[in-house]
């Protein structure tokens, strides 16, 4: 008995591209609804005044993670046919640092900069242009740092196998951590707003 999903769509076929377009519309819609196309709102995450980024991201991660886990449990989805991004320890640690520094300067990430540009924000347009230039320049330089780029290659590596936990147990831990994180996030926002109000007086 094999699970019926995911669909077997040929790369570049009309069906695959229609699905890609639909997924993109949903993605852009949700980012805009959440306000993440706005750099000033997004920066609230890092100034601790508005933790919407954390709340949106972890609600999304938990929703998709739980959905996928249960749909595979009941035999609807074949997990082995869902592509898991591969782990390259060092480039992902360093890439994260460089990316994060850029995100705080830009006030947007690549996906949200597209929404920012589409909704009339000039800063979004500039971030999109800068991101394209950064991808282009770094890709041109990659052959010169091939060893670093491939370092720490671990293939498909998931947290449950590293921690020696059952997938279901780890998912429970992640959900609990996210819920605790939401409670802390609400407290942090209240504390920050009180502090700002005190400073104004």
């Amino acid at each position: 008995m094999s699970a019926p999903l995911p669909l077997s769509l040929a790369t570049g076929s009309a069906g695959a591209l229609a699905l890609a377009f639909g997924v993109g519309i949903g993605f852009g819609w949700c980012l805009e609804r959440a306000g993440l196309g706005s750099a000033s709102k997004l920066m609230g995450q890092f100034h601790l005044t508005d933790l919407a980024v954390f709340k949106v991201m972890f609600s999304a991660i938990v929703t998709a993670m739980l959905g996928l886990f249960w749909l595979s449990r009941v035999g609807v989805v074949d997990l082995s046919r869902v592509y898991v991004p591969e782990t390259f320890v060092l480039p992902q640690l360093v890439g994260g640092l460089v990316f994060g520094a850029g995100m705080a300067l830009a006030g947007l990430c690549p996906g949200t900069s597209c929404v920012a540009a589409a909704t009339g924000r000039g800063d979004g347009f500039v971030v999109v242009g800068g991101f394209f230039a950064g991808v282009l320049m770094t890709a041109l330089a990659l052959p010169g740092m091939a060893r670093f780029y491939q370092s720490g290659a671990r293939g498909t590596l998931t947290l449950d196998s590293v921690l020696g936990l059952e997938t279901g147990s780890l998912i429970l831990v992640v959900v609990a951590a996210a819920l605790a994180g939401f409670i802390v996030a609400e407290q942090v926002e209240q504390w920050k707003l009180r502090r700002l109000a005190e400073l104004e007086r």
């Binding site: 991004p85 591969e86 890439g95 994260g96 460089v98 990316f99 990430c109 690549p110 991808v135």
Partner: peptide, 25 residues
Amino acid sequence: AAMAGGVLMGGGAVLARGCTSGQAL
């Protein structure tokens, strides 16, 4: 800042093989 941030994110995303969408989410 938007330009510099975009360029840095481009570099980071190439090295990390993805960004906030493809890696984080």
